[in-house]
Nucleic acid binder design. Sequence first.
DNA 1: AGCACGCCGACT
DNA 2: GTCGGCGTGCTC
Length: 774
Amino acid sequence: MIAHVHVDAPVITIDRPFDYEVPEQFETLIEPGMRVSVPFGSRRLLGIVVGTSDGTREGLKPLEALLDEESSLTEELLDLSIHVKETTLCFRSSALLAMLPAALKVSYDKEIKEGLVPDGVRLGTHLSEYPKDVQSVILGLAKKGELTLAPVLKEKKTVKTDVLVELLDATVVSKRAKKQLEAIRQLEETPRMYWSTLRQIGLTRPQLQKLEDIGAVRLTEVELNRDPYATIEQVKETVQLNDSQARAVQQIHEADAGETLLVHGVTGSGKTEVYLESIGQVIDEGKQAILLVPEISLTPMMVKRFKRRFGDRVAVLHSALSKGEKYDEWRKIKRREVDVVVGARSAIFAPLDRLGLIILDEEHETTYKQEENPRYHARDVAIWRARYHGCPVVLGSATPSLESYARAQKGVYRYLHLKERYGGEMPPVHIIDMRRELAKGNTTMFSEELFNGILDRIEKKEQCVILLNRRGFTTFVMCRDCGEGMTCPHCAVNLTYHQHGDRLKCHYCGYEVGMPSTCPSCSSKKIKQFGSGTQKIETELLNRIPEARIIRMDQDTTSRKGSHEQLLRRFEEGEADILLGTQMIAKGLDFPNVTLVGVLAADATLGMPDFRATERTFQLVTQVAGRAGRGKLPGEAFVQTYNPDHYVIETASEHDYESFFAKEMGLRQVGNHPPYWFLTLVTFSAENSLVAKSEAELFASDFLQAQVENSRLNGPMPAPLSKLKNAYRYQVFIKTKQPEALYVELARLQQARAKAISKKEYQMSIDVNPYVFM
DNA sequence: AGCACGCCGACT
DNA sequence: GTCGGCGTGCTC
């Protein structure tokens, strides 16, 4: 028997199946989708079986081990990996591995097998157990043949277990064994207990073993699930749907196989109820559902509601869970113990086999696009899976992406509008012209109006949310005398100042230095931070309103696991007057006591080299404005800007999606941007700037020569981030009306460059439907 | 990507 | 005379 295996090596020349002989003892066990360990050259690698065939062939190596008892990837997901490879131009192995939880990936090490070892090194141990200098000594000895190393593959997964203790016979215990007797007494009250509970009375493991040896108890090792939401109680809540919600549920229910529906509903229109109800119906029919949410900030409340409604039949997969927790959730799905999967982007690969509905909440969010290989978009994967299962996809948003809304208008997607809003009208939005504030002599981050509004709320014991539109708005350091900025030595970017540790960091490569006290180029002492981070704003607020209780949410305060939820809970419970933060506080929050929302630097995003900048600004302002006045109290929003007349600020503050859409579509058409054209970005990077440039030029001319129909090419041009991690970067943009033909041509050009790239002279990265243009 | 094999410069 | 530099080629 032969197994066709894709190995864990992201290289284009290895991007094909390799054949292995299946040892007899595995023949009845092996299945496509299983993880295996295979010899590969002198190495040993993780592989995924994509198929098997009968017979045998000369020169095949045998596969070494099966790493799964049953396959980790279903037939469907194996198929899907081909689609992901072809449409994102990634390697098949990258697509396959992206579908697995991190715990099922492996690390590679070397076992010290035999020979003469230095002091302190023992045979049978692993290379990585030793410090770097010892490692190089060992490697040197191996090279001379004085000891042998064998490649090993280490699993990352761990399954948490506990020991179930069952009482068999209480009489056999010696009267003098006090601890054992005490354990028996406990067991007489509760005949089945876990060892983790029993040990709390001071019983040791040997004592427990003794109890088993004499036949007093039976011990069974059992797998335990880490359930991060174990404390949420299931309550059957009955939801009363309004007319438009009921209509939406009805239409989703009646949707055709593989159909996509766009649910457009303003903040507070009750999309969540529609999701809950629709999923409920799907489950009643014996099928399963996936609900994708953009990121963790949305999940606490959403998850709570889903757990309440569907109880244990919900699996949750998001980035804030530990590797082990995610793996446990994944195994629950695999064991068919759940009907609903709620999760972020990668949850779209959940191994469900009876899918009846896929929902993407906040479908316009760019977090659905993965920014590393495989560069897939969860929306596209969702549509593929829905076709496979013959079920509908629901895209939900208060501010749909132009792509989706345009498709809905063309009739490609079915359009559903939720117009009614709970809690009455949208709050009034005040646009504040910061140029006038400046003219008045107000150089702070807060306009008079917004500041007075905050004071007023604190007095009334109501809450405020302040959002800093931080993208392109970081704190950088510059010398006031010579004008020299502190930049990263490896990347063409300014370093960002971090108050924590008084250091400067590069957000692209991780380079870090202490904040200098004098300018490195002119030695002046007038070196200073510019721009406003959340920390600085917090300080400013506290200086002016000392009694204000502020919760700050940004990368620094939310990096610890669970801190995000904790901060939100504290705010919800009224422990603070002001929630201050970046983008992450804009969405999904629903606090009834919030009556004021302020947006600082609403237009900070507009200057970015990105045709979606206006769309993002619209989404941000609309969403954050919708956060005020969700309860009984009326709300108000303040939007501070230097561009008060810009159409995006005007339409967003009037909550006028239609006008924004019409205006923006006109500009997209004129600029030949998506959704009129399908865009692909190809980036060339090399240590030598001339190599990057000439390879980009060569690619451009090769592409033009191929004459892909209905396509055009722009560039090459230097990337906005012209140097990254010591590599110079050039970009080529391709626009097409026929993506399928483009995929084929790009794959051909990629293949043709395989050899040159393997010599490491330059790198080529292809981003189909890019969202980041740096 | 790793890793081995192989062919030329600076050391004991 | 050997150690080791990294160019080249291969991985079932």
